[in-house]
């Protein structure tokens, strides 16, 4: 029946509109659970999601040691040439030459936070930090050296 379908149509439409209106009215009357982050004011309590990626950092422990072997896997994995590994050769106590990093240069201005370097790293030497206030007055300040001055590789990391 055409007429019955028509009336059913109208009623279903009104019902679905009412469902939508009820949902938004619920939100309107429950504005306690505000999702807005009032960012510059809440720096102290700012909560970022785990998956948020700010920049690549290299964690160092208290003895100023890192886990990077200088294998350049991250440099190869990076799609836009953000990471440049400068290697040097250290002398081990046994008198052998051992490859190590001199500098791990990281160009933040080129980085797209794609996370490919982190997954490529075989020794978990680098990770993504959650800092995001990157603005500086000069572009050259965005080129960072990730390993600290005088740091060396951790014992037992090959």
């Amino acid at each position: 029946m055409f007429i019955v379908n028509y009336i059913k149509d109208v009623f279903n439409a009104l019902k679905s509109l009412a469902i939508g209106l009820r949902r938004t009215l619920f939100y309107f009357t429950h504005h306690k659970e505000i999702i807005t982050e009032q960012y510059p004011d809440n720096r102290a309590t700012l909560h970022l999601a785990d998956r948020f990626k700010g920049e690549v950092v290299m964690p160092h422990d208290e003895n100023n040691e890192h886990r990077c072997t200088g294998c350049t896997a991250c440099e190869l994995a990076c799609p836009n040439g953000t990471i440049k590994v400068v290697t040097k050769f250290d002398m081990t106590p046994e008198g052998k030459k051992k490859k190590a990093i001199d500098k791990l240069v990281y160009h933040l201005e080129l980085c797209t936070m794609c996370n490919l370097c982190i997954t490529a790293c075989p020794s978990d030497a680098i990770k993504m930090a959650q800092t995001f206030e990157h603005s500086v007055y000069d572009r050259s300040q965005l080129t960072k050296v990730l390993n600290k001055e005088g740091s060396k590789i951790m014992e037992g990391v090959e």
């Binding site: 938004t24 939100y27 309107f28 429950h30 504005h31 659970e33 505000i34 999702i35 807005t36 009032q38």
Partner: peptide, 13 residues
């Protein structure tokens, strides 16, 4: 303000 509250935001503040 109505828009903000319906979308669980704060609106102009």
């Amino acid at each position: 303000k109505v828009a903000a509250w319906i979308q669980i935001r704060l609106g102009p503040n």
